[in-house]
Amino acid sequence: MTQAVQSVSSEVTGDLYAEVRTFYARQMRRVDALDIEGFADTFTEDGVVVHANGARAEGRAEMVAGMYRNKPRYRDIAVRHWFDHLLIEPVEGAEEGELRVSYYSLVTLADREGRLTFEPTFTVEDVLVRRGGRLLTRERVIHRDLPVEF
């Protein structure tokens, strides 16, 4: 699947950009530390994640169960999620504070000897909402990057 580049319809402030970057830094530190409940708490209660393979996790309980099933994969591995090239767009006509965020993701895995491997790269599309004064992920769709067709 190729990802179309969309133009930003409205600019975001530097403060909002910094808040979103900080949100992702905290969210990814939780998942990298295998803090499953803490990571799930960064999603709305009814949040949805659609993985690149088509698997869906709907709601925090499904997310937590799936992460515990996959946890043994990360034994003796240090995982790091690297996000960059964020495009942040307020969603016009939606609830106040709703944002559409698209970014690139690189995941590294380091073993006890420091050998580093890479996961495939992904483009991620999130919908963030503000609840109780804080940002939460309501929806995440993950696309595995593929060559552009021409």
Rank of each mutant, 00 (worst) to 15 (best):
V127I: 15
V20T: 00
G38F: 00
T123A: 14
R26K: 10
V91T: 06
R69N: 14
T108K: 00
D32R: 07
P90F: 03
L116K: 04
R26W: 04
P72T: 09
T137N: 05
V8E: 09
E119W: 01
Q3C: 14
F43A: 03
L109H: 11
R115V: 10
L86N: 06
R112F: 07
E119M: 08
E11S: 12
V20D: 03
E139S: 15
F23V: 10
V31S: 02
D15Y: 09
G93R: 01
D35C: 08
D111R: 01
N70V: 14
I142N: 07
V141N: 11
V129W: 05
R100W: 06
V31E: 00
T123M: 15
G133M: 02
D32M: 06
A52V: 12
D32F: 03
E98G: 01
G54Q: 04
V91P: 05
H81L: 08
G114E: 00
A94W: 02
Y103I: 01
V148G: 06
R115D: 08
V124Q: 08
A18I: 02
A55P: 05
A18P: 07
E62F: 04
I142C: 01
R60C: 11
E62G: 13
E45A: 15
Y104A: 13
V50C: 07
R140E: 06
R60Y: 06
M67Y: 10
R80I: 08
D145P: 11
A78T: 12
L106I: 14
A18F: 13
S7G: 06
L16Q: 06
R115G: 01
V141Y: 05
T2E: 15
G38N: 03
A4H: 09
G47C: 11
L87K: 09
E11R: 13
T22S: 10
G47F: 00
T137I: 09
R69C: 14
N70I: 14
I142K: 08
R130A: 11
Y104M: 13
L99K: 03
A94F: 05
E119S: 03
S102D: 08
F39A: 07
G93K: 02
E113Q: 09
E89R: 14
M67F: 11
A52E: 15
V48T: 14
A94G: 06
R144Q: 15
S102H: 09
K71Y: 01
V141S: 10
L116S: 04
D111C: 02
L128W: 04
Y24C: 01
N70W: 09
Y74S: 00
R138P: 05
I77A: 02
T22L: 08
T13D: 02
L99G: 07
R73C: 07
E125Q: 14
E149F: 15
L136Y: 03
A25R: 02
A61T: 08
I77E: 03
V8Y: 05
E139F: 13
G47L: 01
E125P: 06
D41K: 00
E95D: 07
